[in-house]
Design a protein around this nucleic acid. Structure first.
Lengths: 333, 333
DNA sequence: GACGGGGCTTGGAACGTTCCACAACACCTC
DNA sequence: GAGGTGTTGTGGAACGTTCCAAGCCCCGTC
């Protein structure tokens, strides 16, 4: 015989299964006597409510599914903190998955979460195409993190990437830089907006945009620098699409004997915790990571418990964080 | 009406629910004709199997629950990779949780996973006491990662922390260091063994152990260095309990104007990816992180699908990784 | 002393699957 | 043409809960 069920507890306590159910759900309409009898029996048997059976009949699991694009990006660790805290506070629990930045893997992870009947879905930094996302959104509330969308079906919360990119350019420009390269985030969430914000800000100051393709990974940043070197471009400053890419760029720059910021200035994006490490001390654009996560949960709850049906798209404002990797222009690459 | 069920599909395809079930599970005993009719109906309705109902009746969820002690520690990102890869390959899916290094939170996360009827449980770097762990282990297979145990109930896979600590001491000793401090990992998983491995190795070389309390976090490492300074201890080398703590130590050292390795040598433990960053380039002890995760999954599967019942405790051997933060002894703190 | 009402308790139906035993049918063999 | 064999398809029970309608009992009221 397997795990004890509500029936076993009922029998042992000499009551009906319904009463056990009531006790387990802290109903006030139970006599003190029976309550303690049930609790006692449950303790003795080591009874634990079966959430699977419960969610089958209630048609509600009180679980929020979270698909993380990339566990290695410390940016998401903070986002997850926000998600867990907020969902715990509202009576839900969060369960995670990861798609490892591979669309096919992400689709599988999404499907898993869907089959498990999670009440709501958070896609953090997903690479999935909007058709797939909207299809998911049509069967369960979905909130996107860090991937702006104009979808009329799913919600989203993201930083204002265009504004953040503008801040980066403006910071570098105010230091005197004219040749500012951007290593973009490729197909990464929000990368297009950061890129276009960069381009717009450059043009606004009469500067020529200089973009190479990268990604939201160290490898992407390193590749970007190598590309810049191969092309013989001579930026005096580099704005990488995120902190991880900036780290990769830092790596590649020191391999090619360029010092930061003495030869080249370098900026990242996100202000993930490692940007603040003294030995890195990266100038970057801060995203309210914790709040990004918390807001996504709230968006879901508005739909789940408050009946909202029109989509909401929340945009949070980033802030500039100046540290040690930027300075006045010098030799450049 | 909500999501379509197997009954809706059956009706639309003009067959019984049982047949639909067979098709969905790729049974070979279905005529081509009916199979395609069912598939077609399912597609039209947007049917998706309900994993909740399925696992209720099968008494199996094919989900492995993973409780992560600390998502901010990059060590776990690699472990998770190993878990996801191995479980995908064996027909299971992994779902994560985090306990944020707070025993009470961890207990709640564990309980959640238990109630959701996951088929097996992986506790990665948990701070939970063994009584709680064994209780969980008595109702579902449990595998511990990075927390050695002699439990006769749960399985475990961990690095040989004593040996790793010895390697660290021996490396520093071979460079000529005599005054080697250890900032320990407090109550962290495996911390006690690293500490005792350090102490044993020190004694073996006729050296006096010098231990201060820390934790597996940056904050713990920084606090350890400050403690060392306050106490007026003058180590020429510091061995931190893990890479994160080493990073915190690095931080505190540069705040107190000590340069690494010119004044003090510094070592970490884990070889998490950030240890390899050129700008950090931490000498450390490598743990086979990916394999730690993969092995935990295998241990669970042995119990689940192969009927093993006696416990197994796998110990993997760490290796020394020499980078730039260690050198010959100099002024010290 | 019948009636009504409230607090506590109960059994049965339902949730969406899988599993099992069996039915239906075709085909082969003697 | 009766009997066996094998392949495909079916309905009902079961999984462990929650929900609902209804029952029981006690008490107060007229």
């Amino acid at each position: 015989m397997g795990r004890p069920t509500i029936l076993d507890v009922a029998e042992r306590a000499g009551v009906s299964k319904s009463l056990v159910s009531l006790v387990m759900r802290h109903s006030p309409h139970v006599s003190e006597e029976k309550r303690s009898a049930v609790l006692e029996a449950a303790r003795e048997l080591g009874y634990r409510p079966n959430a699977v059976a419960r969610s089958l009949v209630r048609q509600r699991s009180y679980v929020l599914g979270v698909m993380l694009s990339n566990l290695h990006n410390p940016f998401f660790a903070d986002v997850v903190d926000g998600i867990e805290e907020r969902s715990l506070a509202t009576g839900y629990r969060a369960l995670f998955n990861s798609g490892k930045r591979v669309p096919q893997r992400e689709a599988a992870a999404l499907e898993t979460l869907l089959e498990l009947q999670t009440d709501g879905l958070i896609l953090a930094g997903t690479l999935l195409d909007s058709k797939t996302i909207e299809k998911a959104g049509s069967s369960v509330p979905v909130a996107l993190i860090a991937r702006a969308t104009r979808s009329s079906i799913v919600d989203s919360v993201s930083g204002d990437d265009r504004a953040g990119a503008r801040m980066a350019v403006e910071h570098l420009h105010s230091l005197g830089h004219q040749h500012i390269a951007h290593i973009d985030g490729g197909r990464g969430a929000g990368a297009r907006r950061r890129r276009s914000g960069y381009e717009a800000a450059m043009r606004k100051h009469g500067l020529e945009p200089m973009v190479v393709t990268g990604s939201y990974t160290e490898e992407g940043g390193a590749r970007g620098v190598r590309q810049l070197l191969d092309d013989g471009r001579r930026p005096t400053a580099i704005f990488a699409a995120n902190d991880l890419a900036a780290l990769g760029a830092l790596q590649a720059l020191s391999e090619s004997d360029h010092s930061v910021p003495d030869d080249v200035s370098l900026m990242g994006y996100d202000n993930a915790w490692l940007a603040g490490l003294q030995h890195i001390s990266l100038t970057t654009v801060d995203q309210p990571r914790h709040q990004l996560g918390a807001t996504a949960v709230e968006l879901l709850i508005e739909r789940l418990d408050e009946g909202r049906t029109e989509p909401r798209h929340v945009v949070l404002t980033p802030t500039l964080v100046v540290r040690a990797t930027t300075g006045p222009p010098a030799g450049g690459l």
